[in-house]
Design a protein around this nucleic acid. Structure first.
Lengths: 194, 194
DNA sequence: GTCTATAATTTGATAGAC
DNA sequence: GTCTATCAAATTATAGAC
């Protein structure tokens, strides 16, 4: 989203994503998406036959865009905090600019009530984002030789803190609560290492 | 919930809570609650005129029960990690036993699509839980004399990690991901302090 | 208190014209 | 591709009998 496409297919994904990220999967409708795009709901069905199809397509595009924005795990400063700060900055961007949750954090909360195809995409987001974080840590002096289990633990904790932080900040209407999470990342811990 | 009351009023709150915590506020209906309780949906409306009333009542009871279970912030071991572990244990309980989210973590994700009365209760949960954590830290040697802002930062981070951890663990179908968050709490940091 | 019955609206989805 | 029109089901909520 946020690249304001002029083609209908792109706009549908843009607005559907925005609606899911603000209200959740179960709170958005074909008519709502159609209205935002400026078409009729039947047109949305033309591109995405079922709601599960639309939800999965939105999640897939979101994950691809997110991972692409993260870029090469090995790039950037050599400190272990660098990739963790990168994750924070990326999440902060969407949260502070539009007041939106991470799409897959939202889907993850609703996971038990989602169609399987959508739930699978949400799981894929976390798997890939955890993998990126582990690779980024392993590529740095601090991470070399560390057991996989420890890298995974730090990765999961970092991402969990970001997801939960978005929830708390939005709920309490104070986005600075999220920004403060970066001050000492779960890996000042890591950054404080050897 | 989980105390299996025999009165209808209590059962309604029990099942409504379970439904919200598994699927979300927008994915449960009066009929679903009624069916689980063994009454008709009109009976649920008798106790809670609107869905917002029911949602707010569920959240209020949940928060009161949660804070009561936390108990006296000053009680327990003198280490700063102790209250943080207590928070983790409490969250772990419901997650591993029933595979359920924290009610207010779920509501917090959906916050933008909730009726104001329900959104207010979700915010109250986080306010009170943050306050409890700050008080618990301040009551320990590590916390004495620390600036409020720092106590708040640790409290928010701890709770954020738990909420996000529940989301990730449930989404990936691996509850051990949540358990591992306790290994080194955001406050081994704190525990490692003077 | 709990029920039956029902109103009013919204939802996901389809058929078929253009 | 996009539309109009429509269906069947589900939703929140209310009225009124018992």
């Amino acid at each position: 989203m946020s690249r304001s496409e002029s083609d209908v297919a792109g706009k549908i994904l843009d607005h559907a994503e925005a609606l899911v990220r603000t209200q959740g999967y179960n709170a958005f409708s074909f008519r709502e998406v159609a209205k935002a795009v400026g078409v009729k709901s039947a047109t949305v069905h033309y591109y995405h036959p079922t709601k599960a199809d639309l939800g999965a397509a939105v999640a897939r595009r979101y994950t691809d865009r997110f991972l692409k924005a993260l870029g090469d795990p090995a790039a950037g400063p050599a400190e272990a905090v660098a990739p963790l700060r990168r994750l924070h900055a990326l999440a902060s961007d969407a949260l502070t600019r539009d007041g939106m949750m991470c799409l897959c954090g939202m889907l993850g909360a609703e996971i038990a009530g989602l169609p399987p195809a959508v739930a699978d995409e949400a799981a894929a987001f976390f798997r890939r984002t955890i993998d990126w974080t582990m690779a980024a840590l392993a590529a740095r002096p601090w991470g070399r030789g560390r057991p996989e289990a420890e890298l995974r633990r730090v990765a999961v904790k970092t991402i969990a803190t970001l997801e939960g932080g978005m929830i708390i900040a939005r709920t309490m209407g104070d986005l600075s609560l999220f920004e403060d999470l970066a001050a000492d990342n779960p890996a000042t811990e890591a950054g404080a290492g050897p």
